[in-house]
Amino acid sequence: MAHPVDADAFAAKLPFSITMPVTEITSRQNPRLKQSIRLRERKGRLATGQFLVEGRLELARALEAGLTCVECWQCPEYAGYERELAGQLTEAATETFRVPKSVFEKLAGREGPDGLIAVFEAPERSPDILALSEAPLIVLLEGVEKPGNLGAIIRSAEIAGADAVIVSGGADLYNPHAIRNSRGLVFTFPVIAMEPQAALAWMRARGIKLYATTPAATLPHWSADLAAPSALLMGSEAEGLSDLWLKEADASIQIPLQGHGDSLNVSVSAAVVLFEAVRQRQVRDRTGH
């Protein structure tokens, strides 16, 4: 069941005025609710080009990035409900739905929701829009299958001051776990999906040296010149990098392991090499070489 909310009563609960319509939905069988629930699955996201965002920080960063907000779902009954953010989402969304907890919990994918979920359009991002630094630092991810790892790598790359993350091999950028583990930085940080050959040509044209990370390498990661324009090539934990990248790389590097474990989580590996690049660049800036 859906019907218009008393706009005056709803607006009175917000810290500023709103102009967009608000509709109340009380049925868990509502077609619009079912349509949005499908976005929790990759198939639904691919079919529509839309995705769900929940969490105050993630929602705020989606708005900061200027993404198109299709709809907003709100439940003021939750203790964590933030009225100012709710007002911003209501203004940004094409449609806003106000629902009780019994309906909201069917859509929410997190424990302890805060009463706000929004649907956004997936942005189209081209590498041509990137404003690269003098010595670009790129992370290229091939076939990283776990969305949580993808999100964590994006977060580390942004914190380390990298220029961009390039994903290849069909990564699910807007999986809820990728969004959450990136802390919403997948929206505000340059993350570009590219086919392998296109990514290779793009980096070669910009004089970026390619470093393949692989356990088969003998060169420690700290011995590579990561202060120069560099791309860190990371593959999946199960398969590693494909032959294309192993062949095309200018050098292969590894993180020397001291214990009995035979590998590191790919997001941990990415952070280790990224911050070695940060260290080398700080030394270069301090000493001039």
Rank of each mutant, 00 (worst) to 15 (best):
M1I: 04
M1K: 04
H3S: 07
P4Q: 04
V5G: 04
A7E: 14
A7V: 15
D8R: 05
D8P: 04
D8G: 09
A9C: 14
A9Y: 04
F10S: 11
A11P: 12
K13Q: 11
K13Y: 02
K13R: 15
L14H: 13
P15T: 02
F16C: 07
F16L: 00
M20E: 05
T23H: 10
R28V: 01
R28M: 05
Q29F: 10
N30D: 14
P31I: 10
L33Q: 06
I37K: 06
R38W: 13
R38L: 15
L39A: 13
R40N: 08
E41L: 15
R42P: 12
G44D: 06
A47V: 02
T48S: 05
F51N: 05
R56E: 12
R56L: 06
L57I: 15
A60R: 01
R61D: 01
E64D: 10
A65E: 13
L67M: 09
T68A: 04
C69K: 09
A79R: 15
G80H: 11
Y81H: 12
Y81W: 06
R83M: 02
A86W: 02
A93V: 06
E95W: 14
T96S: 11
F97S: 12
K101F: 11
K106N: 15
G109V: 05
G112A: 09
G112H: 01
D114K: 12
L116C: 08
V119A: 03
V119D: 11
F120A: 09
A122W: 04
A122T: 10
P123A: 06
P127R: 12
A131N: 13
A131H: 14
L132Q: 03
I138V: 12
L140W: 00
G143H: 05
E145I: 11
P147A: 06
G148K: 02
L150D: 00
A152D: 01
I154A: 09
I154C: 04
I154W: 03
E158Q: 11
G161W: 12
A162Q: 07
A164W: 07
A164S: 05
L173C: 08
N175M: 05
I179N: 09
R180I: 00
N181H: 15
S182R: 09
G184A: 02
L185A: 12
F187S: 03
T188I: 14
F189E: 07
P190F: 05
M194F: 07
Q197R: 06
Q197N: 07
A198C: 04
A199E: 03
L200F: 15
A201R: 15
Y211C: 11
A212C: 00
A216N: 03
A216E: 13
P220D: 08
H221C: 03
A224T: 13
L226D: 14
A227P: 03
A228W: 00
A231N: 06
G235N: 07
G235P: 03
S236N: 00
A238F: 10
E239L: 02
G240S: 06
W245V: 01
A249E: 09
D250M: 05
P256D: 02
L257R: 10
L257V: 15
S263H: 06
S263E: 10
N265E: 10
S267M: 13
V268G: 03
V272H: 02
V272A: 02
F275I: 08
A277T: 01
R279V: 14
R281I: 00
D285E: 06
